[in-house]
Computed example of a mutant assay.
Amino acid sequence: MAEYEAQCARSNAIVAAASLDDVGRHPGFRSGGANLRWMLIHLIEETGRHAGHADIVRELLDRTKGYY
């Protein structure tokens, strides 16, 4: 958890120092030229998707439902 929290703090510092319109500069990634706004929205989407997957696995294991 300490490593995760350290990476979150590093990411937060990077985002705080940038504009949402700043564009990435990593040539090795297909989305490397996207702006920060797109990157943050993509992270939210991916987090939601994987949280949903984890919830499905939990439901299969303990046979209970979440909120709905």
Rank of each mutant, 00 (worst) to 15 (best):
A2C: 02
A2S: 13
Y4C: 00
Y4F: 15
Y4I: 12
Y4K: 12
E5W: 12
A6N: 08
A6S: 11
A6K: 13
A6Y: 04
Q7I: 09
C8L: 15
A9T: 11
A9M: 01
A9H: 04
R10A: 10
R10M: 05
R10K: 15
S11L: 15
S11E: 09
S11C: 09
S11M: 15
S11T: 11
S11I: 14
N12R: 14
N12S: 08
I14L: 13
A16M: 05
A16R: 10
A16P: 02
A17H: 06
A17P: 04
A17S: 14
A17D: 09
A17Q: 07
A18N: 08
A18K: 11
S19R: 14
S19A: 12
L20R: 10
D21R: 05
D22V: 03
D22S: 07
D22N: 09
V23W: 02
G24R: 02
G24K: 01
R25P: 00
H26W: 14
H26M: 08
P27E: 06
P27Y: 02
P27R: 02
P27W: 01
F29N: 03
F29R: 08
F29S: 02
R30C: 00
R30P: 03
R30W: 10
G32C: 03
G33S: 07
G33F: 03
G33E: 04
N35C: 10
N35G: 03
N35S: 02
R37W: 04
W38H: 07
W38K: 04
M39P: 01
M39H: 14
L40N: 01
I41L: 14
I41Y: 13
I41Q: 13
H42T: 02
H42P: 05
L43P: 01
I44Q: 07
I44P: 00
E45C: 11
E46H: 13
E46Q: 11
T47K: 13
T47L: 13
G48M: 10
G48K: 10
R49G: 01
R49T: 12
H50W: 10
G52I: 04
G52K: 06
G52V: 05
H53M: 08
H53Y: 13
A54M: 15
A54I: 12
A54Q: 12
A54S: 07
D55M: 15
I56N: 05
I56V: 15
V57T: 06
V57R: 15
V57G: 00
V57Y: 14
R58T: 04
E59M: 15
L61G: 07
D62Y: 08
R63F: 14
R63D: 00
R63V: 00
T64M: 03
T64W: 03
K65V: 13
K65E: 07
G66M: 06
Y67V: 11
